Amino acid sequence: MENGPLPETREVLCEHLLAKVRYLNPALADQVTDMLVVNISNKEIIDLLTSDAFLEENVEKIVASISEPDSELRESLGMSLFQAVSVLESELCAQVTGMLLELPIPTVTRLLSDVEALKEAVNKARNEYLRFVKGGDHTTGVPSAPPVPLSNEKEELGEVIYEKIVSKYPSEAAKLTGMLLQMDYKDLVRVIAEPELLMKKVELAVSVLRAECENQS
């Protein structure tokens, strides 16, 4: 019996690096790894793999360099954050997630990798939101501006999304719908109008949801 071709050395190194980066920053692991390995040699990748401190320093630099994420990255962060927040705050999950997404991207990724920091941020955001809806002041400084609940239009889109995915994901449809509702309204409309794009976004949300469940088990 013949064995298949061995994987290329660089491919193996990148897979190991991705696994280590995912531990440090699960939300941005793929993007950070791609940025780490561009224009460096295999020896330099090995240096990153053999020194946790050196790797962490480089990961932090790359995350800090991401000042304004593109729409795809924003969606990925929003989905990861929604799943993490939903464990701590189910009732106001969408509102709290929206508030935390207004924080700088490096801060959001830190919250995703630090449960205690996330708990503190969720509590502050929840209290801020409740003060807002009750007409109180805004002194915690968690978001740059208080959010509003989901609009009627978004709620209607949420019902459409739920109906389209509940047969395939009956136990996860509600949470997946909530994750997708973190997208901008105009993007939601486009996604619903294109079945293939909708399923692509749903599958991305499913992968994030199940990865979070595996990490918690």
Score class of each variant (00 low, 15 high):
E102H: 10
E102Y: 10
L103F: 04
L103H: 04
P104N: 11
P104I: 10
P104G: 07
I105K: 04
I105R: 09
P106H: 11
P106T: 06
P106A: 11
P106I: 06
P106E: 08
T107Y: 13
T107C: 08
T107L: 13
V108R: 09
V108L: 08
V108Y: 10
T109K: 07
T109D: 12
T109M: 07
T109C: 14
R110D: 13
R110C: 03
R110M: 10
L111V: 03
L111M: 12
L111A: 03
L112F: 06
L112H: 04
D114I: 01
D114M: 03
D114Q: 09
V115Y: 09
V115F: 05
V115N: 04
V115E: 14
E116I: 03
E116Q: 11
E116C: 00
A117V: 00
L118R: 02
L118T: 01
K119M: 06
A121E: 02
A121Y: 03
A121T: 02
N123Y: 07
K124W: 06
K124C: 01
K124S: 06
A125M: 03
R126V: 01
R126W: 02
R126E: 10
R126M: 01
N127K: 10
N127H: 08
N127Y: 06
E128I: 01
E128S: 13
E128A: 07
Y129S: 05
Y129F: 14
Y129P: 04
Y129I: 04
Y129T: 04
L130A: 08
R131N: 14
R131L: 15
R131Y: 14
R131G: 04
R131P: 00
F132E: 10
V133K: 14
V133H: 11
V133I: 15
K134H: 13
K134M: 13
G135T: 12
G135F: 09
G135S: 08
G136E: 10
G136P: 10
G136N: 08
T139F: 15
T139C: 11
T139P: 05
G141V: 08
G141Q: 12
G141K: 12
V142T: 14
V142S: 08
P143N: 07
S144V: 14
S144P: 00
P146G: 04
P147D: 07
P147K: 12
P147G: 12
V148G: 11
V148W: 12
V148R: 15
V148Q: 15
P149F: 05
L150W: 05
L150Q: 04
S151N: 04
S151V: 03
N152Y: 10
N152L: 12
E153L: 08
E153K: 07
K154C: 00
K154M: 05
K154L: 03
K154I: 01
E155S: 01
E155H: 01
E155V: 02
E155R: 10
L157F: 07
L157S: 00
G158I: 00
G158C: 00
E159T: 00
E159N: 05
E159L: 02
V160M: 05
V160S: 02
V160K: 09
I161A: 00
I161L: 04
